[in-house]
Design a protein around this nucleic acid. Structure first.
Lengths: 230, 230
DNA sequence: CAAATGCTTCGGTTATCATCGAACTATGAA
DNA sequence: TTCATAGTTCGATGATAACCGAAGCATTTG
């Protein structure tokens, strides 16, 4: 009724089932066309157009014209973060829409959260970095240690390029399936990208599922898995 | 098409302006009554009641009856975190709301609530016991853990005598200045009594104010103050 | 007991908004 | 040019839900 940040209008945007489905689809990190989003939400193209205009107006999505197509994507990691948090709440409250299926277990194991790795393996990555003291979390956002910076560079990530950008290097993102933190931010994105470059993992084209090859998973566990003390 | 939790229903809950105002008001961490929330949202009590039922149904708030009042608060830090993120997206500053309770600073700090400690220090006692895992609250009334029982005995309280009585050992009591929980029940009374026996505190004869000696407050903070992680 | 206070339930009104059919614009292909 | 595909705009409809008045509980106070 009065002052303060208008969380109601933004939440209302997410609160419509059709729009929520579109946003969830965009959590894959891929840019999608209006038609694809219409299909995701199960509504006609006209209605979709109206929804997309509202989402754009609310600053939740960004659009790029390319030929006669129009590609839509989430505006920022912040938007993805809010959506992921909402999923956490919904999952905690027992508001799951679908019961556990084959795809669900794959989703829980490894999936993309906008542009970084989430699910069980996302948490392993995060915990593994911390266990090896490559990353420290003192209250606020995580920070790379000296050895951590060295490790990242050795792993084949151009750290200087990431630092040059203005977007935050490390961010925590709450996992809705595990209810624990995993690594987001530009470093999280870089890790995801590197895994694919190394051939460790591939993205499922139709969903958010990330599939690791047996060899890739083995390498992953060696570098990020639980630490065994002597 | 439909994967993951149902974020739409939860977002829709937050998406109504009246409910958003209530939730924002509850972000203070304090429990508020239905009437106060009605006032915050600028709607009648009937409508508020309906909204509160929906928020409760969605698992966003939790309610507690005390006397003829009903106090509402956010269910968890997770809820607060989502709201905070939404505010970030809405790109605005937070706003503080109604300030209620005793104006006397001494009363705010420490006072007697029937027979146990209330006010800021009462909350510190309660939070401190939980932070040290001496007390757990899983939905219902708090319960002493193994280490908690040992701690209580070591502190000089005759736990067996308390257990022998029929009155409940631990109860949560809502603080009317801080609007948060503190420890009541026979254990709460025992703590209060022990503080006085140890010479840590004395009761003001004319009011409900409890005065701690400097040394007593120091000891109190050592045992019940905030926990510092290594 | 009765009066007062705090909150809930019920019924009816109103306003909003998601939805689709149809018509329109824009880009690309034949 | 003509056709096809991608997306937008407009108008009408229908369902949902926010809202309040009035009456009903429940608890405390006098």
């Amino acid at each position: 009724m009065k002052e303060g940040p208008d969380i109601a209008s933004i939440a209302a945007l997410i609160g419509d089932p059709a729009r929520a489905n579109m946003l969830t689809a965009l959590m894959s990190g891929k840019a999608l066309t209006a038609s694809e989003l219409a299909n995701e939400a199960g509504i006609t193209l006209q209605t979709t157009s109206s929804h997309l205009a509202k989402l754009d107006d609310g600053g939740l999505i960004r659009q790029r014209k390319q030929g006669r197509h129009k590609y839509f994507s989430l505006t920022s990691d912040d938007v993805a973060h809010v959506l992921e948090s909402l999923m956490g709440l919904a999952a905690g409250a027992g508001h799951l829409r679908t019961r556990t299926g084959p795809k669900d277990t794959a989703m829980r194991k490894a999936r993309v959260c906008y542009n970084h790795l989430a699910g069980d393996m996302g948490i392993q990555l995060f915990d593994g970095l911390i266990a090896r003291q490559h990353l420290v979390t003192d209250g606020k956002e995580p920070v790379l240690t000296e050895t951590g910076q060295q490790f990242v560079v050795d792993f084949g990530i151009d750290l200087d390029a990431l630092k040059a950008k203005k977007s935050p290097l490390c961010k925590e993102c709450l996992d809705w399936s595990e209810r624990r933190s995993h690594l987001a931010g530009s470093l999280g994105r870089a890790f995801m990208h590197r895994f694919e470059d190394l051939g460790w993992s591939t993205r499922d084209s139709a969903s958010r599922v990330v599939r690791f090859s047996p060899a890739g998973e083995q390498d992953f566990n060696r570098l990020f898995g639980p630490v065994h003390h002597a």
